[in-house]
Design a protein around this nucleic acid. Sequence first.
DNA 1: CAAATAGTGTCTTTCAGACATTATTCA
DNA 2: TGAATAATGTCTGAAAGACACTATTTG
Lengths: 251, 251
Amino acid sequence: MSGAREVGYDPYAFEPFAVTVDLAVFTVRAGALHVLLIRRGQEPYAGAWALPGGFVLPRESAETAARRELAEETGLSEAVVAALHLEQLRTYSEPDRDPRMRVVSVAFTALVPDLPEPAAEGGGDADRARWVPVGEAAAPGAALAFDHAVILADARERVGAKLEYTCLATAFCPPEFTLGELQSVYETVWDTVLDRPNFRRKVLATPGFVEPVPGAARLTGGRGKPAALYRPGPATTLHPPLLRPSEGPTA
Amino acid sequence: MSGAREVGYDPYAFEPFAVTVDLAVFTVRAGALHVLLIRRGQEPYAGAWALPGGFVLPRESAETAARRELAEETGLSEAVVAALHLEQLRTYSEPDRDPRMRVVSVAFTALVPDLPEPAAEGGGDADRARWVPVGEAAAPGAALAFDHAVILADARERVGAKLEYTCLATAFCPPEFTLGELQSVYETVWDTVLDRPNFRRKVLATPGFVEPVPGAARLTGGRGKPAALYRPGPATTLHPPLLRPSEGPTA
DNA sequence: CAAATAGTGTCTTTCAGACATTATTCA
DNA sequence: TGAATAATGTCTGAAAGACACTATTTG
């Protein structure tokens, strides 16, 4: 007998699957990694926090649906959302992950700079959205809806790992940023302290990671020497990688 | 108005999606990376080569479906397949990727040791399966079905990258292997030549990557000193990574 | 012995970590 | 001036790359 591939393609010959997207949207604010959560208004899990998301429409790819949902939930314009970093995390397909029916969800990770209170502004679903520190959102007491605690944990792990070997950290920064700000992104996501001179050396020695903005400077904390500003460079990967300290041997 | 999440969950209220899995199954044989392909017997793309795969059944997760298909297509027992390395690659969801209906496919990458002609043995779909060198399978003339050329390219890139920072290379090896065999896995997948002494030093200096099999040795090429045998160790990641040579600066 | 493969030792360069020092700003 | 922040310089030890050399097997 041949495989399922050979079965006829009558759309109603089998139990239909719903396909959704879920988004783990991260930002760095006030020295802590935050994730965007939505308070659910309906059963199941009414009143619980959940990752933003929704159905993939009939003519959409999952990526398109994810960007549409991101725009709806943050209240940001399509143009702004189009420029944000968005990448597939993985797909969650356990048969009972949604108690109502079979729902397969393609999860995405998005990294955004510290936005001026996105949840408070626009219409859409944004009024039910809130930035929550990941430590709080991942705590057992948070009791996220569905399998969103697992998705969040996977996404957080992925973001930490990607900082090591990609130039992704700049996605958390405004268009122009100081090396101190970039360093604090690493320190916040990894929950470590890095040596500033060594961090500078490493970042500047990686061609295409950041580019200086000629002449520009910004005063960071009210005091101290103004810091030079940089823009993201054309590079996307870090060779060699910038490894997390004391990740320890693999044992 | 609220998002799609709030829409009622009538399973037939929207156009149904089919959910399938596609597998990029790799092995190293005869000094070349090979991928398992199936010759299609039906339209569309009848006669073309395709990645093995099939529908996710109503009570299966995508992972379960992928392992079931892998067993069917290779003719290997469930027990053997359960031990193989299988991981999600990403999900492909472009609306027109299948001309017949809306099909969302969760792609997986599997790494197997050089099996004794798996395609020739068992029943199932195995008789239509063949190991094809990836250079051949990825060539424009191969014209893989659906978007499988893209999936294959993504999978190949992922495998190459994962060898750098995980212990995955042992998945291509038999249960006991020599360091020369392990090195040739790296050289084959990366299409490079590595310095043997330095490779040894690096592998043995990574705790938990490989464990010596006491007293065991194997004659590799008919001549020469018999090589010591090793088993995969408990480690899963490589810290620090074993980087591909001359990957070049990131520019 | 020659050929072939496995394994060891060593030198050099590069790079990461630690940290001392200088520079520039505000109060 | 002192506190705070940015930026530079230097030293050291670990690791990577290059490569010479030894060891063990078959024919």
